[in-house]
Nucleic acid binder design. Sequence first.
DNA 1: GAGCCAGTTGAGATCGAGTCTCGACAACTG
DNA 2: CAGTTGTCGAGACTCGATCTCAACTGGCTC
Lengths: 146, 146
Amino acid sequence: MTDANPIVSALDLAGYRLTEPRRAVADLIAEQTGHFTASELERVVRDRRLGISRATLFRALELLTELGVVERLDLPTGEHAYVPCARAHHHHVVCSRCGRTAEAEDCGVSDAVGEIARRTGFRIDSHRLELFGLCRHCQARTTSDA
Amino acid sequence: MTDANPIVSALDLAGYRLTEPRRAVADLIAEQTGHFTASELERVVRDRRLGISRATLFRALELLTELGVVERLDLPTGEHAYVPCARAHHHHVVCSRCGRTAEAEDCGVSDAVGEIARRTGFRIDSHRLELFGLCRHCQARTTSDA
DNA sequence: GAGCCAGTTGAGATCGAGTCTCGACAACTG
DNA sequence: CAGTTGTCGAGACTCGATCTCAACTGGCTC
């Protein structure tokens, strides 16, 4: 089987060894539709008896974060979560009901950042914008539910 | 002594007891110029023999966060930090060298957020923008240093 | 000023995410 | 196919944060 999983290819391209555990983690991540926490993955690993240790899981996540194929974000609760994503700079919109995420491009954010830099006198090197709300699907459900 | 410390007044107004430990924590926070982590505060408490337990410190921080007089933010390193701040919605600019923070008002961010909502179809309820860079002071020092 | 009582506190156990160590193992190279 | 070396697994460890529960105290009442 040629690897259909782009995460695996990313590892390969970056010159990392394609080990069994890494493939497994890559597959797990690839099947996530929204954000996920390390402990969620951990549970899946345990349930499916994939035999991947916690250390390896964290190492894989760290590696993939470095490669830019997943991104770490902070939920309003203070939890750390991960989202699979593309390399370019963008922002994440997280559904607080179902956990679905969407990526949003700049949309004028960098203009705002420039304006903030001007007003505060700071030289802004990086920024992080995280958005929380309801996805289309959950909005519809809320209207009919409540 | 009438309490000059606005954090103490905020506690009072919200109907919480003005206990010795809370006053002490409020004072500590009031003297911070930038962001600070819970463990930094913890060290200060220990150094000054204020006799405040960790649990109390965390409880006070939680309470003050709830009241909106401090805000919790996530540093790029993944650490949790706090900044004293006003109640209105705004964003924090953090100097990655010295830790100074500035508050930035909207500056067009909410327009961008609206645009993102439109494009993704999400109903955005809240967002968090954190900016990292160098403050004026550290920019000057960098230029002369390097 | 004394007494009462719910809200708070302190000490320390506990939790839980994440990291580290180190011997064993397996992926790529020639 | 053997060697090199990157990676893995198990489990101890770290450390931020939370919880428990008995003791205490701030603020109200009289």
